[in-house]
Each structure stands twice: as C-alpha cells, then as structure tokens.
C-alpha cells in the first residue's frame, strides 16, 4: 500500500467520523429538546406555579379538609385495587403461561380490554350497570346499596382500568421460565403451595413488583373512568385528579397546581422505584 493511498483513506475516514459525530450530536440534541419541552418544562411549571404564592399557601392547599379527603380516597382506592389486581394477575398469568387450554387467546384478549377501551366508556359501563336506570339499579336501590357515585364505584372503575398491568408484566416472564423448575419441585415432593412460594414466586418477584408499581401509578392517576362514576361530591367522592380539576375550575390555580404537584411527586417516586426494580431484575438476569 502506497503512502499516498493510505493518506487518502485516512482523510476519508476522518471525514466520515466527523459527519458521524455531527449526526450523533444532532440526534441527541433533538431528543434532549423534546424531553425538555414535553417532560421537564411542564414539571417545572407545575412546581413553580404551586409555590408561586409562598410555601405556606402550598401547604395549606394540601392540608385543607377537601384535599385531605381526596388524598385519603386516592390512597384507599389504590390500596384496594393494587392487591386485588396483583392476586388476579398472578393467577391469570400462571394459567396462561404454564397451561395449555382452549380459549386461551380469548382470555388474553379479554384481559387486554381495559387497555383498548377508552376510560370514559369504562366508566359509562358501570353507570349503565349499577345506575338507577341500569340493569342492577332497581335491585341495588331496593337493598340500599350504593355503588356508583360512591366509593365502591370509584374502586370498581379503578380496578377495571388497572386490571391488565400485572398480568401483562408476568406472562412473558413466566413463559420464558417454562415449567421445568416447578416440575422438579413437584417430583421432589413439594406440595402446590410450597412450589408456588419457593419456586414460582422468587422467580417472578421483580416482574411482579414492576407490574404492581405501574398498576399503582395508574390507580392513583386515573381520571376519565373515575370522573364518570364519581358524582364529584367535594370531600366525599373526589380523588386527587378530580380535585385538581375542581380547584382549577374555581380559579384556585395555586391550589390546583399544589395538588397536581403532589401527583407529580407521586409519579417521580414511582419512577425512581421503577428504575431500581428494573436495575435489580436486570442484574439478576445477567447473573
């Protein structure tokens, strides 16, 4: 190879590298701008608006009785929806991943319905089912049971909406693991529960946790479906997202943003836990 040719090629590759570098930084720039505009800026706005009239007012907005009751209701709703969907999720994922049966695909499709359907429709379904004019309305009324426009309705709607998170997370993990370890456990004389707690659960725990976190985030943040079944009674059937809307509509912007910042904070905490769980499960898998 002559020296001249070598020079030429070197020159070319340097040029190539330069344009490669340019492209790289351009792409990174676009991504960062996008992230800044759509994620960070709104977050900053929420927090700065919330504290714009002083920290004291901020705290006041979060501790006034209606806000407290909204916080309480949101926590209650999540506390019911998450465990329920966790248990159901493990059962359903188990059935789908480890067994072959007829109608399996139909079951998977059914589980996906809450993702596919608009939350408002989900809420309306409950109104049509449990409302005074609905299918079960007269029966419920005769027995003095209140479902919609009360806490049960809000919980039901939330459970429905957050239904698929855990299952969806578990199915691929369980499928990947197969049934070998469990069969081994059974052959060695473990009973069903022992097998579940000593083999299955340890294998899926990080995925399960991840699904629960997502489920919880959505349960606390759900607006559409809950809005339809809530009846918007202040201090009684208002969850945090609904409370934000009410405050905003009352020109009480500082308080609205204060409550919104609480939700944003919740989301941030969720994200941190989520990244931790992801990191842990990633590490475990590589070991």
């Amino acid at each position: 190879m002559s020296a001249k040719k070598y020079e030429e090629r070197n020159e070319k590759s340097r040029e190539g590298r330069r344009s490669h570098l340019l492209r790289k930084w351009m792409l990174i720039g676009v991504a960062l701008t996008f992230l800044g505009l759509f994620i960070f800026l709104p977050l900053i706005v929420v927090f700065s608006e919330a504290t714009s009239k002083g920290f004291e007012l901020y705290l006041l907005a979060l501790t006034e009785p209606d806000a407290l009751s909204a916080i309480k209701l949101t926590l209650i709703t999540a506390a019911i929806a998450v465990p329920l969907n966790t248990v159901f999720g493990v059962l359903a994922a188990w059935a789908i991943a480890k067994f072959e049966f007829k109608g399996k695909n139909i079951l998977i499709t059914l589980i996906d319905i809450p993702f596919a359907v608009s939350p408002v429709i989900a809420g309306l379904v409950f109104v049509l089912l449990f409302g005074s004019q609905g299918l079960l309305g007269p029966f419920l009324e005769a027995n003095n049971i209140k479902v919609i426009f009360g806490i049960p309705g809000i919980v039901l709607a939330t459970v429905f909406i957050t239904f698929p998170f855990v299952v969806r997370e578990l199915i691929p993990i369980m499928q990947e693991q197969g049934t070998d370890e469990e069969e081994a456990a059974l052959t060695l004389g473990a009973n069903g529960w022992q097998m579940f707690f000593r083999v299955t659960l340890p294998n899926i725990k990080w995925g399960l946790l991840y699904g629960m976190i997502l489920c919880n985030a959505r349960a606390m943040g759900e607006f559409g479906a809950v809005s339809v079944v809530s009846g918007h009674i202040r201090g009684l059937t208002n969850t945090l997202p609904l409370h934000v809307e009410i405050l905003y509509n009352e020109y009480n912007f500082t308080a609205a943003f204060a409550v919104a910042s609480l939700l944003a904070l919740l989301a941030l905490v969720t994200l941190v836990i989520k990244s931790f769980v992801e990191w842990r499960s990633e590490k475990l898998r590589s070991e």
Partner: peptide, 8 residues
Amino acid sequence: RSVIDGLE
C-alpha cells in the same frame, strides 16, 4: 343525568 342515574 347523574341524579337520574342515582347520585343521591
């Protein structure tokens, strides 16, 4: 509508 549907 809500009252008709059962909002008390």
